[in-house]
Design a protein around this nucleic acid. Sequence first.
DNA 1: TGCCATATTGACAGCGTTGTCATTTAATAA
DNA 2: TTATTAAATGACAACGCTGTCAATATGGCA
Lengths: 348, 348
Amino acid sequence: MKSTINDVAARAGVSIKTVSRVINNEPSVRPATRKKVMDAVEELHYQPNLAARNLAGTRSYTIALIYDNPNAYYVIDMQNGILEACKARGYELLIHPSNSKSSTVNDELRALVEHSKVAGVVLTPPFSETQSVIEEVKKLGLDYVRIVSSGAAEGDEDNCIQVDDTAAAYDITRHLIEHGHKRIGFLCGGEEHVSTHGRLEGYKEALQQAGITIDPELIVAGEYSFDSGVNGAKHLLEQDNPPTAIFASNDEMAAGALFAARLMHIEIPQQLSIVGFEDSPFSRQTWPKLTTAHQPNNEIAKCAAALVLNKARSKSAAESAAANKDAGILKKFVPELLVRDSTGDSPN
Amino acid sequence: MKSTINDVAARAGVSIKTVSRVINNEPSVRPATRKKVMDAVEELHYQPNLAARNLAGTRSYTIALIYDNPNAYYVIDMQNGILEACKARGYELLIHPSNSKSSTVNDELRALVEHSKVAGVVLTPPFSETQSVIEEVKKLGLDYVRIVSSGAAEGDEDNCIQVDDTAAAYDITRHLIEHGHKRIGFLCGGEEHVSTHGRLEGYKEALQQAGITIDPELIVAGEYSFDSGVNGAKHLLEQDNPPTAIFASNDEMAAGALFAARLMHIEIPQQLSIVGFEDSPFSRQTWPKLTTAHQPNNEIAKCAAALVLNKARSKSAAESAAANKDAGILKKFVPELLVRDSTGDSPN
DNA sequence: TGCCATATTGACAGCGTTGTCATTTAATAA
DNA sequence: TTATTAAATGACAACGCTGTCAATATGGCA
């Protein structure tokens, strides 16, 4: 039933090494030979055995996705995007949720390499933005791609997929300003995420450019969770001079803000506008539907995976750069404003 | 840095085969020897190489989770639960999202076995309840566990983790009846899920037992999605004699119903009670928070994984049954009623 | 035609385990 | 004791592939 490289070699009348060359796209195989082998592969439905490859080769055929788990939708999008890329190239994906607070990530990373022989990793925030993690990954000689907020790419652009939070946050804030809002509250995400700072930055820029003074009272700490959205919004709305709009750092917090508003019998968007960020499915499942910024997580994941895979299978940096160009991999994304029903004109 | 079985053997002064015996918990090793080996393992931080194990052994050390992807929270819960069990025993998890409509699952299953040498699979609905899939899995000689709605366990109880949807749905309906509701709408989930029928069953039982006639007008088809919740609820609420309560087959549909109610300016729970099912995180993130039935997905996943793992590592059925007993694996779960803010007394 | 350089192919040794089977050791019976 | 048997251990060949390096074609050129 299941055929091995030996079967293919026999059928094609060549040595197993030649078959190996063909399936790995190595040079120095005559076109005629290559064809013979490919035909045999086809006929036998041959698929290289991953365990054997991993064991024999220096490079491995599995990559890992490292993530903390704040948002199920985000994680699923990432997984699916990466899985697609992996499947296309015969790689395997190991998912590795970890806790960013208890910092055993480095040990886990090491175990991943030694134990499972992982070729590369895709790092998502906040790990992708944590210096010690990045260093460990480098030390382990792992190919990696970091999905980061633009600010965190530093001199490591080659290994980053950037999301321009600042630009997107600017657009969102602009949208509110254009609707006459002058007092706009801002609910921060977790401190450890660079995106938090990037989004705040965009918010401030838009305000400044519109000549609106930034009121620190309107900026409240939080951590990308529903509950922190509830609390943050309450805090804002109980002020003497409450904002007419709230910019929540992600959809989950926005849903929390919505919840708080409802508790206080505030009408959305008539009395208060609320915006989120990310366009996660449940921004469409609130009432009213959330105005947000669409972050194409699935696309981002696919690019990230393609990037590591290119690195992993190329010998030189130049070679992988060339492969990237061919594949049309995008390395910078700007989430796009998506106006739905939770925003409207300022009541004042 | 990374140590192999040879290093351990050398250190312990035994042959590699003996080390193998110890790490695989095989019999016929003298306690003293076992200890020597274990110490060496400890000291060298030895971890068996998975690729080698998979290649050499008849049994493999990776299991797969097969799922369709309706609900991100559900999937993540499953993954994490299984991952925990896997980690504890040195197994690896391969996630495999698939599409239940396009029925290539069987081919994918076969590929999984041949290509990656998967030892066992955890099947979630609807795959776990699809006859052809189950047969293929059996034919492939795979160890498997099916997470199913009680009705679907048939004569295969040994390989099933059952969720008693009927009992839970009964409780939920009872709760509504106790609040004076007599006209209770029911939003069905997808036809292909056995849970849909189980939940409907429980609803009917409770009604009948309370002497309330079942009105087919109040039962509407759907498919476990937000949108179908919106549409189903609209359909119910636009009737001449609309229900005073709606039982949605899952939280997502309940959120949809909430959305529809809001559109129609209906107050929850004053004018209408709404219940969901599953207790997914966002049943806590709606306003008002949803009354629902708590389904311990993470726990269920852990049990499921423990079950396959026991099967995979045991030679005989008896042996694995014994292991199960030891581990205290639960094989039947009844989701528990969780009363929150979306239900109240009937307005009539 | 003959020779050299280069392109193509193959033989063979691992990779780190487990499985099989032979060997040694301990335990029991005589 | 010694013979007999069972338990404990080890030697060695797989597993299916890749890497290394040697062997063989092939083509170009004198």
